[in-house]
């Protein structure tokens, strides 16, 4: 643990609360297993002593800003999480002046499970190109040197090479395990529809059966709603209790959008995602 970094986060959080700049600070504290981290909400200056930061702080806390719309909150944001801030700013879901961003330079997060911390860096961190958050009001720990691998989408390329039948079989098997707990949706900073299509009765998009075909429909629409919007935090895959490799779907869509529109979600708060824009030159001529 980088104690100096943690002290900077605590000091900043404390002064923000003492000065009344924000109502609360969303950060991390040690989980009940004593090994991993969990989200933590500090409302009193004294509570900031519980804040920590280390390689187990995987949660993308930006999601919680959606519960706090209109309130002034500070939030601890890693470089990858900052893309969620840009996404939500762009989509008008949060207001910049209501959010105080405590950015952290990030050494990369490791794979964890309850009561266990591995040495293995999460896949998304291995190819992360960001040395600091894209947007912040205060940077704790400064910018970090990173030796990132080049993003080649090798997993996606490998999957694309398989036949349609093989891919279909693979995904039906994966979705067959889905228990429709919706943790993937609940944790996603890009999922904020007031009523999710999965719970809409009129019109009825998808039924309640926890069975391969309906699970497939649920997961397909979920990932398509995030095409060009997924910021790659991979929280959905991390929280999935049955280990469905959702990153493979999300990254396939990310790769396609990058190739077709030269766009990656969350890099710039002012540039809207391709599916929320319409350019005149994209208009098809009659019969085209």
């Amino acid at each position: 643990m980088d104690t100096e970094l943690i002290q900077q986060i605590r000091d900043k959080a404390r002064s923000l609360l003492e000065e009344g700049t924000v109502e609360g600070v969303i950060g991390y504290e040690r989980a009940s297993d004593g090994v991993t981290a969990r989200p933590f909400f500090a409302y009193k200056p004294s509570a900031t002593e519980r804040l920590i930061f280390d390689e187990t702080c995987a949660h993308n806390l930006v999601k919680y800003l959606l519960d706090r719309r209109g309130k002034k909150m500070a939030v601890v944001v890693k470089p990858c999480d900052s893309r969620a801030i840009n996404l939500l700013l762009n989509e008008g879901q949060i207001e910049r002046d209501k959010v105080f961003i405590i950015g952290v330079g990030c050494p990369g997060m490791v794979e964890t499970s309850w009561n266990h911390k591995s040495e293995t860096l999460q896949a998304k961190c291995r190819s992360c190109q960001l040395s600091k958050p894209l947007v912040y009001d205060f940077l704790a720990g400064g910018e970090l040197e990173r030796q990132a691998e080049e993003e080649t989408y090798s997993d996606v390329v490998e999957a694309e090479a398989e036949s349609l039948a093989t891919r279909r079989e693979f995904w039906l098997e994966q979705f067959g395990r889905c228990i429709r707990c919706y943790a993937c949706r609940q944790v996603c900073p890009g999922c904020y529809c007031p009523v999710c299509f999965a719970e809409r009765l009129e019109p009825l998009w998808v039924g309640i059966r926890i069975a391969p075909e309906e699970n497939e429909l649920w997961q397909t629409i979920r990932s398509f709603h995030l095409a060009g919007r997924c910021i790659g935090c991979n929280e959905c895959e991390r929280v999935c209790p049955v280990g469905i490799p959702l990153s493979l779907l999300n990254r396939k869509l990310e790769k396609d959008v990058k190739e077709l529109f030269a766009f990656q979600a969350g890099l710039d708060a002012d540039e809207p995602p391709p599916f929320a824009t319409f350019k005149k030159e994209e208009k098809l001529e009659l019969g085209e």
Partner: peptide, 16 residues
């Protein structure tokens, strides 16, 4: 409400 702050409201706990 404090405990609810960090709850995601997924159904994992109930389904396991």
């Amino acid at each position: 409400e404090q405990l609810g702050d960090r709850c995601l409201h997924c159904n994992i706990c109930a389904y396991v």
